[in-house]
Amino acid sequence: MSNDAGACRLRVRYVKEGRLAHLGHLEVMGTVLRSVRRAELPFEVSEGFAKRMRIQFSQALPVGASSVAEYYDLLMPVRLDAQEALDRLKAATPTLLAPQEARVLPRRMPALEAWANRALWDVDILGEDVTPDAVRDGIEAALQKGTLEFMRGTKPRTLDLTSTLVSYELEAISGGADDDGGRGVHTRGVHLGLDTRVTERGSLRPAVLINAVLGRAPNRVCRLSQWHEERDGSLTSPMSVG
C-alpha cells in the first residue's frame, strides 16, 4: 500500500457489449489490466516477488451477459486528471469494452466487489410461446417457494430468492415478421426488468432465474446499473460516491 499523499483510486465505468458479452470475468479482467498498461497510467503494484497491478473490479458479470455499468478501481500512486486518464484508457481499450466515465476518489474506500450490492438487469426471452403471464406465473411460484435450487457446474446450489430478487417488471415484445432478415431469429417474446440484491449468501443471476422458471436460457441479458444499498434502503451510484 502506498503512503504517498497523492495516492488515489481511479474509478472507471465501462461497458461490455456485442460479441464481447461472451467473455468470462477473468478474460475481462485480463483485458482491462492490459488496457491500463497500454494507456501508460500510473498504478500501484503489490508487494512481494511477483509484482501485480493493484486493481479492484465490481462483481463478476456472467459469460454471455452484456453491460453498460461495469466498474473497476485502479489504485494509483499519484493523482491524475480523470478526463485525461479516461481519454488514455479509451484509446487503449477494445471498443466493445470501452470506458465511459472516470472519477478520482480517495485511496481508502471499501472494495468495489462487496460494496456494489444492487443491480438492475434487462433480460429478453424470445419465442412465439413466451408470454408475460407465463413468465410472471413462473417467477411468482418461485417466490412462493422462497428458494431457487439450481446446478452450478456439477454442484447443486440453493439461493434465497426473497432476499436476492428485489422486484421485476414484464413487457411483451412484438417485432415485425421480417425483422430478423430471414435468419430465423424470433422477434416475439418477453422483456423482463430485474432488480437484484447481493447478499452474504449469494446473488441472483438472471439466467439462473429464467432457467428455473422456464427451463431455458434467456436470449439477452444486460446489466443496466449497479448501486450500493445503504442500511436505510437508499441507493448510491458508484460514480457519485465520495
Binding site: 456485442g18 460479441r19 464481447l20 461472451h22 467473455l23 478474460e27 483485458t31 488496457s35 454471455g64 471498443t95
Partner: peptide, 10 residues
C-alpha cells in the same frame, strides 16, 4: 471457451 471464436482482439 466461446472467446475462442470472437475475433475483435486488440
Amino acid at each position: 471457451r466461446p472467446s475462442r471464436y470472437l475475433n475483435h482482439e486488440w
